[in-house]
Amino acid sequence: MSGQALIIGKEIEVVSEVNSTNAYAKENLRKNLDSRGYWVFTEKQLQGRGQGSNRWVSDSKHSLTASFVVKPQPWPGKDSFWPVRAQRLFAVCVQDSLQEFVKKNVLLKWPNDVYLDGKKVGGMLLENGWQNGQAMWTICGLGLNLSSSPAFPTESSHLYAPIPALEFLQTWGGIFAETWKKRRLQSDDVLLQDYLKALWGFHTYREFELISTGEVFGGTAVGVDEQNRIELLVQGIQGIESRHYEIKSIRWR
């Protein structure tokens, strides 16, 4: 990590250059366990984690690479598994807050991609720390292509107003914080329904591929279960069957 850290307010820390905002946030946690509930933004990320073994490298001031550090929080309603709840909460807050800035439809592709009008423009990566069987901290990493991606340029008509990247980050960070504050108190059921509405490609018949065998089959994504596996309705021999798949089991076609 290099570059001087600049603290903006109490909730956003902007670092000029960092290997990974998640790793930087993790180091912060180890130094000061009380410093939770804030964003780390960087203008240049060198070794962010992308799809599979890929790196999410951003070298533009107009990319958004950031991590939200938060302490696991209690919530009303059912006692759902914190990491799954945190993933849904973070995802809907990302959607809510980004939609404030863009004209086109922001959706989420299960389980952790960000889509703009059917094209991938970013991804999310959640990490949790556990001790004694309890989640101690959660870091929600977000990588978005802004001006570096033709799909989401800052100056293009996708945005309601062209704004400088740093200003965008600060404004968006503030909106996200408000969204988080409001949504974190929602019950599991409300959150789940909003999360399902935000998912791209749901309630549409499409083809999927079973990775283990290469078999292609048709189905409709209708939900996610308590372990965040996708639920597909598939025509079986006896009629319509509900099948649950992990991310590593199937591929969207």
Binding site: Q87, P111, L125, E127, N128, W130, Q131, A135, I247
Partner: peptide
């Protein structure tokens, strides 16, 4: 105590298991 022992990955959620 707090040192990372392993990661358990579940549905793209990465969980660092720390020593108790």
């Amino acid at each position: 105590a707090g040192g990372v022992l392993c990661i358990i990955e579940a549905m793209k959620l990465f969980n660092e298991i720390e020593s108790d």
